[in-house]
């Protein structure tokens, strides 16, 4: 059965439930819709970006440009709506077009120039951050009617928690991601390329188109994450969101997706995001712990998950190795 694949996901889910139970045992107040609402709102931009990262990693690649694209988005929107007087909706459409094309270009370079994704997206990371500085080096506040409207859009959950617009947006993006990953040809092709590029090619998977689409999707979602981030902070700043790509990678890996590609679930990434958010919330509740403990725990979790994945890969290799051998 698909046990080993589901095993990673189940492990992640179990860890989340266990961690949450432990938190509640210590701080009963953590079991409230307020905490859950904040968990979603605070991690909305990271979650949206992590969906894109999941596709990239499923295909066996990596996208280091996400944080820079988020910063660029904030600065671009703030300056476009403010200084340039572009209508907010038009600015958003423009921005998403720019980031999507940016990702498509990176994907095309990765495929046609046969360059490692690490290098191409590293270049993209510097480039996008540089452009953000070029537009403005200041933290630019965003004042737009649209933003006020969106801030006012939320569900009041029983118990007083707010499911904000960006929290809902993140959940919607995750739903769409799950749909794309598991119910479209594009999704199959992503898994196929991540499994074995050469086999996928021999089986007729359009490698070029799929690669371009993967990175375009990732950058599009990074743009969307940037919009969520600017809604969250109500400002655009070129120094913002440094290292977010690494948080996104961490969430994807904790969510059970293999860094080597070809195996994992978008839903797992949501769990990864929630686990990371939970650790942060716990530290806030505790009040005495330094916020660096978040990083320490995430680091330990990553180590544990990488070891777990290695173990799974080793087990499955041994199994297929045994059946591959012929009696001498």
């Amino acid at each position: 059965m698909t046990s080993s694949r589901l095993f990673s996901l189940a492990t992640t889910f179990l860890i989340f439930i266990l961690a949450y139970a432990l938190c509640i045992a210590q701080f009963p107040n953590m079991l409230s819709t307020r905490v859950i609402g904040n968990l979603l709102t605070d991690n909305a931009f990271l979650g949206i970006a992590a969906v894109g990262m999941t596709f990239v990693i499923l295909s066996g690649g990596i996208d280091l440009s996400i944080g820079s694209v988020i910063a660029f988005t904030g600065v671009f929107l703030a300056v476009a709506m403010g200084d340039w007087g572009v209508p907010p909706l038009l600015a958003i459409v423009l921005l998403l077009a720019i980031t999507t094309v940016f990702g498509a270009v990176m994907g095309a370079m990765i495929h046609y120039l046969a360059m490692p994704p690490f290098i191409v997206t590293l270049a993209g990371m510097f480039f996008a951050r540089g452009i953000a500085f070029l537009i403005s080096i200041d933290s630019v506040p965003i004042k737009a009617g649209l933003y006020d409207t969106l801030h006012g859009l939320y569900f009041r959950m029983p118990g007083g928690g707010r499911l904000t617009f960006i929290g809902m947006a993140m959940l919607a993006v995750f739903l769409a991601g799950i749909l794309i990953a598991h119910f479209t040809s594009f999704g199959r092709n992503v898994y196929a390329i991540g499994g074995n590029r050469q086999s996928a090619e021999l089986m007729g998977v359009p490698i070029a188109r799929t690669t371009v689409m993967i990175y375009a999707l990732s950058s599009f979602l990074a743009g969307l994450a940037g919009i969520a981030f600017s809604l969250y902070t109500s400002a655009g700043y070129s120094l913002a969101a440094v290292g977010v790509e690494l948080d996104a990678i961490a969430a994807v890996v904790i969510g059970g997706t293999l860094l080597t590609g070809g195996s994992g679930y978008v839903a797992g990434t949501l769990l990864g995001i929630l686990i990371m958010g939970l650790i942060q919330t716990y530290i806030v509740f505790d009040g005495t712990l330094s916020s660096w403990w978040t990083k320490i725990v995430i680091g330990l979790l990553l180590f544990a998950f990488i070891a777990l994945q290695r173990g799974l890969v080793w087990l499955s290799a041994r199994r297929s190795g045994a059946s591959a051998a012929i009696p001498a």
Binding site: S185, R188, G194, M203
Partner: peptide, 21 residues
């Protein structure tokens, strides 16, 4: 082909219908 053959990380059905789902 002898070695490079289908995708072990997809299901049997996905392998049979990859590219023509």
């Amino acid at each position: 082909y002898q070695e490079v053959n289908l995708l072990p990380n997809l299901t049997v059905a996905e392998n049979l219908f990859l590219g023509r789902e």
